[in-house]
Write a protein that binds this DNA or RNA. Structure first.
Lengths: 145, 145
DNA sequence: GAGAGGATACTCGGATAGATGCTGTCCGAGTAACTGGGG
DNA sequence: CCCCAGTTACTCGGACAGCATCTATCCGAGTATCCTCTC
């Protein structure tokens, strides 16, 4: 449930890839945002494994989106990157007579659902639009052919 | 945003205190659930500072609820215990041209609001009822006068 | 001109180390109620 | 009977160690394309 830097790295890289959607993007290009290259590689692998990206190895390899940007939500990215480990009441492993009957697991489970459903509303294509209209770097980038 | 053990300790202890709402409860009683006494003391202090509990030191000291159990929500407890540190996009500190314009901070902020509003629905008194009706330890406890 | 083999340019993924924050421990300080003795 | 000082029973809060996880680094392995050489 923690939001780590991995998610930030993933989203920014996906924005970049979305911008150059008609060509494969290199890891080095993405790392040029100021992200550790090797660490980013691991994040990209998570996105690839979960089917958000397609990667190809070898010469002319790199990354492309596996599906259109309006079919990728922040929830997809969050799940791919942060995993689905989550809180569970551990009272049973203590001398706690509640033995998980306190309803904590359920309450936090419901809260997580709301959290995720809010992330689901946020599509990659929306973020792309917002970033471009805010006059960000993406606007000024020249495709490095 | 992480849900640590502190929250679990806090909720279970508050349940105990709620059950014996007409007397002060000792730290040792609460720690008897199988929680490190000294660590729990820190959690209790967080709850006291945020106005959920009232504590008194000295002989006959201990803890009591600062307000009725139906006016204490899981959100109150969560905020008191986990604090309000939360995700902020740090792209500015990198060579990232997005400079925080990606909307990540806003998106996760909205998601957090939904998360908290769900926790707000869960009152201490509800959890108390649930725990008792599930035949838990609370039912069998004899007030240690 | 075509096929084979080597060079090149990428990603994959495991091992490892440092940083950070949670968890747990220790201990002295502070405070309020009780107790007992002296006036 | 009353007051005062000492004792006792608590919480407060800082310092510190252990540990898990996140972050970052290193490096060899694997793979696809391209280039060159040979026939």
């Amino acid at each position: 449930m923690r939001i780590s830097k991995k998610t930030e790295y993933a989203v920014h890289s996906l924005l970049y890839i979305t911008f150059f959607k008609d060509r494969t993007v290199l890891l080095d290009e993405l790392a040029a945002q100021g992200i550790s290259r090797e660490y980013l590689a691991k994040v990209m692998r998570l996105l690839t494994k979960s089917g958000i990206l397609k990667s190809s190895v070898g010469v002319n390899g790199g990354y492309v989106l596996a599906r259109p940007a309006d079919q990728i939500t922040l929830e997809d990215i969050f799940n791919a990157v942060e995993g689905d480990a989550y809180y569970r009441c551990e009272s049973k492993s203590r001398r706690c007579g509640l033995a998980g009957k306190c309803g904590l697991t359920e309450a936090f489970g419901a809260a997580r659902k709301m959290f995720l459903s809010e992330l689901r509303k946020c599509k990659m294509s929306d973020m792309m639009e917002k970033s471009v209209s805010d006059g960000s770097w993406l606007k000024n980038l020249n495709p490095v052919v």
